[in-house]
Each structure stands twice: as structure tokens, then as C-alpha cells.
Simulated assay, not measured.
Amino acid sequence: MKDKILGTLYGLAIGDAFGMPSELWSRRKVKEFFGRITTFLDGPAENEVACNFTKGQFTDDTAQALLILDALNKNNFKPSDKLIAEALINWANDTNAFDNNILGPSSKAALNAIKVGEDPSVHTKKALTNGAAMRIAPIGTLFSSTQQAELVNYVRKVSQPTHASDVAIAGASMIAHAVSLAIEDKSWNEIMESTISIFDIAVKEGEETFSASIPERLKLGMEFAETYKDNEEVFAQRIYDVIGCGTLTSESVPAALAIAYYCKDPHSCALFCANIGGDTDTIGAMATAICGAKSGYKTINKDWIYMIDQNNDVQLHDYAGMLEKERLNWRDSHGK
């Protein structure tokens, strides 16, 4: 199981770091500037979001995922709004994320409200962006694929300091559940079918908003994957044009899931996401985490693992051990 958990964590970090240089650039601009991204790159000076990062560094997606795990570990893995919010604010202050365009709009508004003693719910209830989904993949490793209700409830508690809308909770639950299925080595069709089914449970847990349907967009993305299975360029363009690769949960989550379904392995997935345009680091983090969960750590390019280890001040093996231990503790205490 630890191999699969490590695969999830390294998939998350690799997809994030590969997608960093092209983050929030159009597909046209990515092609024009890079040609094709085939390796880890520095964030270009021309990219105001990525310019503060160097090659192999991951961004807020992975950083927030790990600091949330730290906050959970401090409280025996019982989600605490206070501890999670404090961890996010401390990280944002340390990295100057409030001023450097690193934080997403929903998280930034909610955390700023908390900093000045205001009620963040005015922001969290309307949060349509992907900040909850981008950082949730490791939570999926804690649950078996049959624990859908438990997973959704936990995802809601972990996400609500910054994201409490129906679409944010549902999108994050879909990513986490896909990881749960992938680490059990379910087939790709089983992963997608069950991930679609969890939406109806999860969407009831958040504050009601209105968005395009994530399941319907995912189904369409899967149709594109089958239709263009031998033409990656056309598939990528259809995802970009029709499903969307923006920062909305209703775009990036179905895009990431469809891309994982299409690519299947973490190497092609990370490269695909880096070149697609739009929210490349977040889509890469979500999709490649799922692929990494399915294939496992031992299959991942060791040079890529070395790059992540050398360029980020974290020990992902320690986090994997933490998650494996908590998964076993949780299952033992609930008789699962």
C-alpha cells in the first residue's frame, strides 16, 4: 500500500511541477513560447504566476496538500478548521503568497477574512474555483473505495476553511475517490464510473450554487478519449475547447479526470497536462496523482523523483508513512 500512496504523492508533485512554467497561459501561448514541454523547467520571467519558481519546484497545489496533512496530524487526523486555516495562513505569509499571485481567489478571500477576524463563510459558500480539489488527492489514500459517505464527509471538513460550496466539495470528493479506487487497482472504467456516482452524494454536502455538471462534462471527456485515442493533439484541443482547462472546479476537475483516463500512466499524463494550456499545474497535480496512485511509486521515473526531492524541502516518504499508518488505524478502529 505504501507504494501506491507514494505514487499518489509523487504524481501530485510531478504533475504540479511540470505544469508550473505554463500555468495560466493560453494553449496558443504555451505552444508559441515552449514549443513542447518535455522536462522540468524554470518558471519564465514572462509568467507572472510562475516567475518565482525554479525547475522541479511544485506550487501551491502540493504545498497546501502537505500542510493540510501536517495540520491533520497535529490533531490525530480529526479535521480542525482552526488548525487548517492557521496552517494555510502561515504558509501564505512565509511564501508571500498573498502578494505573489500564488493563492487562488477563493482561498485568498477566505484567508484574508480570517486574518482580520471576519466571517469567511461569505466567501467559502460561493467558492467555485478548484482550490479544494487541487490539494485533496492524498486524502483519498485514507479511504477504501466502499467508504464513499465517509470520504465525502471528511473531504467537506478538510475543505470548508476555504471552500464550502456544493461544486467545490463535489469536485474534491471526485478527485479523492478516484485516488481511493486507483490505489486498489480498479480498472479505469470502474474508476470513472464510481467517481461519477459519488458526485450525487457529495454535491449535497455544500452550499448550493450553480455550475455546469461535472459528471456530464466528464462523460463527454471520456467520449473524446475514446474517439481520439490515436490522436493526442486533437483530444487535447477538444478538452481545452469544450470541457475547459480554467480554474473553475467545473472545468478543471472533469478535464483532469478525463486526461487521467486517457493517459493512464503518470509520465505521459504530466507531460500532457503541462502542454494543454490553462490551469496546467493544478490539472497536472490532480490527474497525475490519480495515475501515480494507479501505477505506484516503483514505476515512476527515478530522475523525476530525484528532481522533486532535490528541489523541494519535503520528505514525501515521511508523509506516505503517516498516511499508511493512519489508513490502518482508521480501518482497525471502524472494523473495515
Results as ranks from 00 to 15, higher is better:
S211R: 10
I198M: 06
V234F: 12
A236S: 14
E223I: 09
M222K: 14
L218W: 00
N231R: 13
D200W: 04
F224A: 00
S211M: 08
R217G: 05
S211T: 15
I243H: 07
F199G: 08
T227I: 15
E232P: 13
L220F: 07
V203I: 15
D230C: 14
E232N: 10
S211I: 13
Y240V: 05
E232S: 14
A236Q: 12
F210H: 09
E216P: 15
T227G: 01
Q237H: 10
A212W: 04
E208P: 09
I214V: 07
R217Y: 03
E205M: 01
I196F: 02
I239N: 00
E207A: 03
I198D: 00
G221L: 12
R217C: 01
I196H: 01
E216F: 15
E208Q: 07
L218F: 01
S213Q: 06
A225E: 01
K204G: 00
V242P: 03
F210C: 05
S197V: 03
Y240D: 09
V234A: 11
I198R: 07
I201N: 09
F199Y: 15
Y228D: 03
I243S: 05
Q237W: 01
E216N: 14
A236C: 09
E208N: 11
G206T: 13
E207S: 03
D230M: 13
G221E: 03
D230T: 14
F224I: 04
F199W: 11
R217A: 12
D241M: 05
E223V: 09
E223H: 12
E207Y: 08
N231G: 09
F235I: 00
E207H: 05
V203E: 03
E208M: 14
A236D: 06
G206N: 12
E207K: 02
T227R: 13
V242Y: 11
L218I: 01
D241T: 06
L218H: 00
V203A: 06
F235V: 05
T227L: 14
E207P: 01
A202E: 08
E207F: 10
L218R: 04
A225F: 07
F224C: 04
G221F: 07
D200F: 13
E226Q: 05
R238S: 02
F235Q: 05
S197E: 14
A202G: 10
R238L: 03
E232G: 08
E233A: 05
K229Q: 14
P215C: 00
P215V: 01
K219N: 10
E233V: 04
I243N: 07
F210V: 13
F224Y: 15
G221C: 13
K229E: 15
G206I: 11
S197F: 01
I243F: 07
I198N: 00
F199R: 01
A236E: 02
L220R: 14
F224L: 05
S211D: 04
S197I: 10
G206C: 13
T209D: 08
S197L: 14
I198A: 03
K204A: 03
A212Y: 08
Q237F: 00
R217K: 14
S197K: 12
G221Y: 07
V242A: 12
I214G: 11
D241G: 06
D230G: 15
K204C: 05
V203N: 10
E207I: 06
Y240K: 07
